[in-house]
């Protein structure tokens, strides 16, 4: 079924459509949350909360505001950031700026990653240059804006877009192989 149709059904509160969307994106959303909170169990809990939020606010999604995945991605990032700002989290001494998503990749054993293609991609991501890792981390996992990335990495505004495109292209090329 077309994504647009599934989303339309989901917005009519069709739980079957919702389950399809959950199966399509829950792994990704949990992964993004995990890179922020740096705790698998907490990430999985927040991930479920995020999908409940998505269900309860289904009518607020509008295709003109962006991709459906991007919509959930933003909700997930906000929920994860709220979590690490909370008191209880600050007490658990995590230093989030130190670890990039590649840190999680490095700590993961190959058998945990499951399928062959994911292992291949993982190895490819680990071989990405530092420049790509940091810009992908900030844009996709942390949700920084172009301006914020420019400031954070101390590079010109225009360079953010082109460098990011080149980095994403490398991942795409790897997927195509």
């Amino acid at each position: 079924m077309e994504l647009e149709l599934i989303v339309a059904q989901f917005q009519k509160k069709d739980t079957v459509a919702f389950e399809k969307l959950y199966n399509m994106y829950s792994e990704n959303i949990c992964g993004v949350i995990n890179t922020i909170v740096q705790n698998s169990n907490v990430a999985e809990e927040i991930c479920q909360d995020v999908f409940m939020k998505v269900w309860n606010n289904s009518e607020s999604y509008n295709a003109s505001k962006g991709r459906f995945f991007t919509w959930i991605l933003n909700i997930a990032r906000n929920a994860a950031i709220d979590e690490i700002r909370s008191k209880s989290y600050k007490n658990s001494k995590k230093n989030l700026s130190a670890d990039y998503f590649v840190g999680i990749l490095e700590s993961k054993e190959d058998h945990e990653s499951g399928k062959e293609d994911i292992i291949g991609l993982k190895n490819h991501l680990l071989s990405l240059k530092e420049k790509c890792v940091e810009i992908i981390e900030l844009l996709y996992f942390k949700g920084f804006t172009q301006k914020e990335v420019s400031k954070e990495l101390n590079i010109p505004l225009g360079t953010v877009k082109t460098r990011n495109r080149s980095c994403i292209s490398q991942i795409r090329n790897n997927l195509a192989l």
């Binding site: 792994e27 992964g31 169990n41 990430a43 809990e45 994911i118 996992f141």
Partner: peptide
């Protein structure tokens, strides 16, 4: 699709 692949690699799994 490439972002989905990327984010999937760091997933801890789902409930």
């Amino acid at each position: 699709a490439s972002v989905l692949s990327l984010t999937r690699t760091v997933s801890p799994g789902t409930i």
